[in-house]
Design a protein around this nucleic acid. Structure first.
Length: 1135
RNA sequence: GCCCGGAUGGUGGAAUGGUAGACACGAAGGACUUAAAAUCCUUUGGCCUCACGGCUGUGCGGGUUCAAGUCCCGCUUCGGGUACCA
């Protein structure tokens, strides 16, 4: 009986299926173990030989755990929604459900052939209503919860509403998009619509206007991790920035917990590092810089003091601001401005005349401010210093002004700025609103005022109140707020940069600069993300305004540039060109000053970015190390009320809307333009049919074509669908209880299976899926629906399987010189793949001759390398006949052979159709069997390393299985016997048990395959066919090669499945050696070995070694300096 | 630029600081066979040598150590990730 793998594999696959061998249920008698493969997207191309790598590894581990007595959950299913199926549907008109089902069937067929131990009863598909019911359900929960920053967990929105009803925004700890501020009475007086709008600011699933990655070619928005270098990852289409109203998930609220959780899980350091970078926590300070009134281009460089004199522009022209700056710096001295009253009285009169009649907006605002409605007393037209502002709160030193239309004249803007500055120097804070703002968005105006009132409060009373209520982007009207991690460099700030999108751009732009700023903003708007990345030229424009450094008192110019991101920090930075390379480049380009702050650093050529050295030019920070200075500066900023300590995260909220058809419908309807959730009893909301998978004429998403797409009451349903990661974020929970129609997962199932013990998949999910599913799980954990905070305890990334391409060399024309003899036959691994051509399309006759030269002779000719299908090449030898019939244009090909063979060149490239190097697992299974495929995939190299697939080596593992078979059968006769095993045989077996156990635990499957080979080689040499040895060996091999193991297990007389056997345990007693072969080395170089009893003591070993004749010969009379004896290991003689 | 991995024969790779190259492919030679396939045996890092044996050798340059592929410092180079994140 020969080893007939196809028969054996078919037989046992049928047996496992019929006997439900892999069916799993909750079993409280057994410990659980959950092994999961990353959710596959069933693409139309099917599996290539690289895909099953991780599945085989997880299958081995699952089978191993089962043999060890664990109840193993090992499920599989499909992430079935997605863009490719929909793109295909658009092209072909076929319904994506149809193509998806077809692809799944193909995947299943391929997977089945490899003999995995999946419990297929638990299969899930994200596109099935039974499944997406719970995706929609989770979304509703997210809509109905907010994130409490103090408790660091999700809480019901009803609690937030109760809080608003009772005390407004006072003392709230809710993570919000913006900081809002209102009283209870205001909340209660708001309309339903207004209240809903406000709540969206806090909901974990929320609708907001966002700048999104819009991909016109795909007609949808994409998440950050779906975009790379300005193009979509799927399809490579350009992506641009666009503001759209989109659903988002408040992932950013969980940033700290996502970061903290990493320390509790067993993932590789590099993966954790990637997640850390993605979350991007940076601890720093927000610093408030008041705007200065001075004007004009360029900054005043003042070498003798940090104080600036205003020499240009209007306003307080020519007035030295020396004294005020000093006062400003030393806040304990009351601020007072000593301006010439005569000059200013003219201005007042001028202004006053224009304000004689209260405008409509002034009246509106007054109605909202009067009678302590804000909680503070406001006065109207009350004189302050030498001005009469519109509204004043003396208690909080806050002035509110409403600008009429005339404020847009150049002159008036000048005057207003000067006025603001003076009042601010007197300790007043100034808020300015336009008529339009007051009329159209009065509640935002009043919120801003209230926020200002309470902000002042916290500064005054505690100074250290760094609560989690960030000010809105860019700060109030009279200041710029920047975020920095290098507060220590405050003395080196020579300019401020605003993001072009910053709200402050308008405030800061002076009339002279308006045209330039407008032009600049228009150009940046037009640039796509990709252009911004590709084009690293320094660009920017001066706003015309200045801010005052609150520590040094210097005036610094405010610039606008797109190297500052609006979405990070406050959208404004303090530029320290000496110590930040980006600022440096900007300063050099615009010729701005660079002040070095660290002793001995050279900033003539580049910035000194390192956080090391001793501070200089830095006032109270001089002499400190950078580390100390950062801490001291941060504390100083907090204590002096210049700013506050702040933690920023890079992690953004996940955009959750896709303007596509093939995804989960949102359980959302709209009433009065506000979103509402469907009742849970209405779930699942089934994806409707549409006539075409394209946007409507109005530009609505494809769901706009669906008939009756509204609630029973006639309210319209959401037209977007959910993104790919919606269905894949909690899928691992559904496997625990896949048929449950009452809940995502029952409490019982969840408490038994808990979370995934081993998760295997590719690195490509490091920042997408693995962040979203951790977030999603933490949210469900907060709701008490799941019992583990982290979904994936241990995670292994399998390496990529690369392709190995083959080349033939077409002769362009023979070289003029006659062929030189013995051209060297190097492999072409250094061959540049770019220079290789793919064959011309059928029909087109390629240029050059139809003559091909073998690799070893190709250097004698001028050749063009051409990719050739690896499936017609064996051991780099081309099958000439197959090549001729491969493509019509090669039918008459001629060959220059070496030794009668055509040798192909090769190179390692990505495995892809275009390289003709795709190897299909089905072909391997057909030729060698699934067990050989499984073993060979593991044998290729370490699981986590990427490596090229080369079918050439597969014969080795196939021979191994045949040799194993030969221990059982010879010419159809069984060789098995009941003989007692010898000590040597037992040693071979137990050595192998020990090695295999260790290797599986360490996921070192390549070395375990080697160990099996060694074992079988040794047993073959001994002609050992003893049941006592072979039975444990077969069980040991069962996780790796389950079919042959099952066959041989039954041959050994068993009737049940090998899956239910017990994994053999190593008995160390069989491994004890009586002697040790000591390598005897001289100065570390081994010269000979000496066999000595294993229990011989150190002194005797040394004695034996020194007395040995070989030693005497080696020494050749030299004196011994030292002898090192490591018992059981080595002897080293130093001479 | 930054972060993370690698670099060992013709190839994939092995090696708790202790005989570098296990195991396998390929190659060469041989056995069996009319022949082929299959199977089995021998050799196989390089150099010198009839041989015994010796020298050399883990990307490069230093260092630690009785002993370094392995640990430390400085480079070269190839992959992967990420990017004006202040």
């Amino acid at each position: 009986m020969e080893y007939n793998f196809s028969e054996i594999e078919a037989k046992w696959q049928a047996y496992w299926k019929n006997n439900q061998t892999y069916k799993t249920d909750v079993d409280l008698q057994k410990p659980k173990y959950y092994v999961l493969d990353m959710f596959p997207y069933p693409s139309g191309a099917g599996l290539h030989v690289g895909h099953p790598l991780g599945y085989i590894a997880s299958d081995i581990y699952s089978r191993y755990k089962r043999l060890q007595g664990y109840n193993v959950l090992h499920p599989m299913g499909y992430d079935a929604y997605g863009l490719p199926a929909e793109q295909y549907a658009i092209q072909t008109g076929q319904h994506p459900a149809v193509t998806t089902a077809k692809n799944i069937a193909r995947y299943r067929e391929q997977l089945d052939k490899i003999g995995f131990c999946y419990d297929w009863d638990r299969e899930i598909r994200t596109c099935e209503p039974d499944y997406y019911h719970w995706t929609q359900w989770a979304f509703i929960q997210m809509f109905n919860h907010y994130f409490d920053t103090k408790l660091q967990k999700a809480m019901p929105v009803e609690l937030l509403v109760k809080h608003f009803e009772k005390s407004g925004t006072q003392d709230i700890n809710a993570h919000g998009t913006e900081e809002l501020c209102f009283t209870a009475s205001e909340w209660n007086s708001k309309s339903e619509k207004e209240q809903q709008e406000i709540l969206l600011n806090y909901r974990i699933a929320y609708l907001a206007d966002l700048k999104v990655n819009w991909c016109p070619a795909l007609g949808t928005v994409l998440a950050n991790d779906e975009v790379s270098e300005g193009v979509s990852i799927r399809g490579g289409h350009p992506v641009e920035q666009k503001v759209m109203r989109q659903w988002s998930l408040r992932v950013s609220a969980y940033a700290q917990r996502l970061l903290d959780g990493l320390s509790k899980i067993d993932w590789t350091d590099s993966l954790k590092e990637t997640q850390k970078n993605w979350i991007g926590r940076s601890e720093g300070a927000e610093i408030h810089l008041p705007l200065a009134p001075s004007k004009g281009g360029g900054i005043e460089e003042n070498s003798t003091s940090p104080l600036t004199t205003n020499t240009q522009g209007g306003g307080i022209e020519g007035k030295p601001v020396h004294s005020q700056i000093i006062n400003f710096q030393e806040k304990d001295i009351p601020l007072y401005y000593t301006a010439d009253k005569l000059d200013w009285s003219l201005l007042i009169d001028h202004a006053k005349a224009m304000r004689s009649e209260p405008t409509e907006s002034e009246s509106i605002l007054w109605e909202m401010l009067r009678a302590n409605k804000t909680g503070f007393k406001f006065r109207r037209q009350h004189p302050v210093d030498k001005f009469i502002p519109d509204f004043v709160c003396i208690e909080k030193k806050l002035i509110v002004e409403v600008d009429g239309d005339y404020h847009f004249t150049e002159e008036q803007i000048e005057l207003d700025k000067a006025r603001t500055h003076i009042l601010e120097l007197s300790g007043y804070k100034m808020l300015r609103f336009t008529n339009d703002e007051v009329k159209s968005t009065p509640h935002f105006v009043i919120e801003k005022i209230k926020s200002e009132l309470t902000k002042e409060n916290s500064n005054d009373s505690e100074g250290q109140n760094h609560s989690a209520t960030p000010p809105s982007l860019g700060g109030g009207q009279g200041e710029v707020i920047v975020f920095t991690t290098r507060a220590d460099t405050i003395y080196g700030v020579t300019f401020i940069v605003l993001a072009p999108e910053s709200e402050l751009v308008e405030t800061c732009t002076t009339p002279e600069q308006t045209a330039d700023v407008q032009a600049y903003i228009n150009t940046t708007k037009k640039r796509t993300e990709r252009e911004r990345i590709a084009d690293r030229r320094v660009t920017g424009v001066f706003s015309g305004s200045y801010a005052i450094n609150p520590v040094s008192g210097t005036e610094i110019p405010i610039w606008i540039s797109d190297y500052v991101l609006a979405g990070y920090g406050t959208g404004a930075i303090m530029a320290v060109p000496a110590h930040d390379s980006r600022d440096y480049a900007f300063a050099k380009h615009f010729n701005l000053p660079i002040i070095p702050l660290i002793e001995g650093c050279d900033v003539s050529e580049e910035s000194f970015d390192a956080k090391e050295g001793i501070m200089m030019n830095s006032g109270f920070l001089n002499g400190l190390t950078v580390k100390e200075a950062i801490e001291k500066a941060k504390t100083y900023v907090g204590e002096k009320g210049i700013g506050r300590i702040k933690v920023n995260f890079r992690l953004r909220d996940a955009i959750f809307s896709r303007q596509r058809y093939w995804g989960e419908p949102f359980p959302v309807y709209y009433k009065d333009d506000m979103p509402y959730m469907l009742d849970e009893s209405k779930l699942p909301l089934i994806l409707p049919e549409v006539d075409k998978f394209l946007p409507t004429e109005k530009g609505e998403p494809p769901l706009g074509r669906a008939k009756n797409w509204h609630t029973a009451d006639g309210f319209p349903l959401e037209l977007c669908t959910m993104p790919g990661f919606a269905g894949s974020s909690a899928y691992y929970l559904r496997y625990m209880d896949p048929k449950n129609d009452k809940a995502l997962v029952s409490k019982e199932a969840n408490e038994y299976w808990r979370n995934v013990d081993l998760y295997i998949g590719g690195t490509e999910h490091a920042t997408g899926h693995l962040v979203y599913s951790r977030f999603w799980n933490k949210f469900l954990f907060d709701l008490g629906l799941v019992c583990e905070d982290e979904p994936f305890k241990k995670l292994i990334n399998q390496g990529m399987i690369q392709g190995r391409s083959n080349f033939v060399y077409r002769v362009k024309h023979p070289l003029p010189t006659s062929p030189k003899g013995g051209g060297d036959a190097h492999s072409s691994s250094t061959q540049s793949p770019e220079s290789a051509l793919t064959p011309p399309p059928s029909g087109e006759v390629g240029r050059g001759s139809g003559c091909f030269v073998s690799l070893g002779l190709k250097d004698q000719y001028d050749t063009t390398p051409i990719h050739v299908d690896v499936n017609i090449v064996s051991n780099d030898i081309l099958d000439i006949e197959k090549f001729r019939s491969w493509r019509p244009e090669f039918a008459d090909a001629e060959f220059i052979l070496e030794d009668g063979k055509y040798i192909c060149g090769w190179a390692v490239e990505k495995m892809s159709k275009s390289m003709f190097n795709v190897v299909n697992p089905d072909d391997i299974v057909e030729k060698y069997g699934a067990d050989t495929l499984r073993l060979y995939e593991m044998f290729l190299g370490p699981l986590e390393q990427s490596k090229p697939w080369d079918t050439n080596g597969i014969d080795g593992v196939h021979r191994f299985l045949k040799r194993l078979w030969a221990l059982f059968y010879k010419e159809g006769e069984s060789l098995l016997n009941e003989d007692q095993p010898s000590a040597e045989e037992l040693k071979i077996l137990h050595k192998t048990i020990k090695k295999i156990t260790f290797d599986i635990e360490n996921f070192s499957f390549n070395t375990s395959v080697s160990a099996f080979m060694i074992c079988v080689n040794e047993l073959s040499a001994l002609k050992c066919s003893k049941k006592a040895i072979l039975e444990p060996l077969v069980i040991l091999l069962a996780p790796f090669a389950p079919h042959i193991a099952e066959e041989l297990y039954h041959a050994l007389g068993h009737t049940g499945t090998v899956c239910d056997a017990a994994f053999p345990v190593c008995n160390e007693a069989f491994l004890v050696e009586s002697t040790v072969k000591y390598p005897i080395s001289f100065n570390g170089k081994v010269r000979f070995t000496l066999e000595l009893p294993a229990d011989m003591n150190k002194a005797d070993v040394e004695k034996e070694a020194l007395e040995n004749e070989n030693t005497i010969k080696q020494l050749n009379g030299a004196t011994i300096k030292k002898v090192i004896v490591v018992p059981g290991k080595i002897v080293n003689i130093v001479i």
